Simulated scan of single mutants.
Amino acid sequence: MDQFASRLLRLSPSCGPVRLVGVDGHAGSGKSTFAARLARAMGGAPVLRLDDIASHDELFEWTDRLLTQVITPFSRGESARYAPYDWHARAFGPPVPLPPSPVVLVEGVGAGRRALRPFLALLLWMDLPREQSWARGRARDGEEQREFWDTWVRAERKHFADDPSEPFADWLVRQCGEGYEVRSGPAGTGETDHFLTLSDGPSPMW
């Protein structure tokens, strides 16, 4: 994991001084876990969770909010300030700061959407089929969230039909046991025969 983190730090800044790295994929595909492990490998890089930007009323219609609260300040080299959404209270909380760190991970469904791609240094896609991802998510959240998941699945289908991310991914990430396998994505370098296994143990091998 450390080697992959070092690779990200060598990328050119993409949004002011920040290297924004998108971690996209279907709900339940493991984005949050992977982003957290990658952030730790970079010494605690900030992770912007799109669950904090979206809301019940705007599952995917949050682009303007993200651009205004995060992207525009970063592009000026300033700290962002965004108001995280509380999914239990159904309300946005007080603004919190997000400094323009060398790498900021943007994690969530839609992180690779059309409006954000010009600001990304790299786009990662969690390579797990949608039905399998949704099944994992439903199992994780339990029966009490069944109605929400029914609504979410319809919204996610529509979002990716209108604005797909996977075709623009630089790397595809697949969980393999305790680690991850990464291979070049549709928008990557074409090195489709090279694999990187990421783990928290010894340095990975190309």
Score class of each variant (00 low, 15 high):
Val182Cys: 00
Gly188Val: 08
Trp149Gly: 12
Glu166Cys: 03
Gly190His: 07
His194Ala: 10
Lys158Gln: 13
Phe148Gln: 10
Glu191Asp: 12
His159Thr: 12
Pro202Gly: 11
Ala139Phe: 15
Glu156Ala: 04
Thr151Asn: 15
Asp200Tyr: 02
Glu166Ile: 11
Gln175Lys: 04
Glu131Val: 05
Trp134Glu: 01
Gln145Ala: 11
Gly190Ser: 07
Ala135Glu: 15
Trp171His: 15
Gly201Trp: 07
Pro129Gln: 01
Glu166Gly: 12
Phe168Pro: 03
Pro202Glu: 09
Pro164Ile: 14
Gly190Arg: 11
Arg154Trp: 06
Asp163Glu: 11
Lys158Met: 15
Arg138Gln: 04
Arg140Asp: 04
Arg183Gln: 07
Ser133His: 09
Arg183Glu: 09
Pro202Ile: 14
Arg130Trp: 09
Glu144Arg: 05
Arg174Thr: 06
Arg154Lys: 12
Arg130Cys: 04
Gly185Trp: 00
Gly190Ile: 07
His159Arg: 12
Arg130Ile: 03
Asp170Lys: 00
Glu143Gly: 11
Phe160Arg: 02
His194Val: 06
Leu172Trp: 03
Glu147Thr: 10
Gly201His: 09
Trp171Leu: 13
Gly179Met: 14
Gly142His: 05
Lys158Val: 13
Asp200Glu: 11
Trp171Ala: 11
Arg140Gln: 11
Val182His: 00
Asp141Trp: 03
Arg130Ser: 01
Trp134Ile: 15
Val182Tyr: 08
Arg130Met: 12
Gly177Asn: 13
Trp152Cys: 07
Asp163Ala: 12
Ala169Asp: 13
Gly201Ile: 01
Asp170Ile: 02
Ala161Cys: 04
Arg146Val: 00
Ser165Cys: 08
Phe160Val: 06
Leu196Glu: 10
Ser184Glu: 05
Ser133Lys: 03
Ala169Pro: 04
Lys158Asn: 00
Arg174Asn: 09
Arg154Phe: 13
Arg157Leu: 14
Gly190Phe: 08
Thr192Phe: 01
Gly185Leu: 10
Asp163Gly: 04
Glu166His: 10
Gly137Phe: 13
Gln132Cys: 14
Glu156Asn: 06
Val182Gln: 00
Ser165Arg: 03
Thr151Arg: 15
Val173Tyr: 04
Phe160Ala: 02
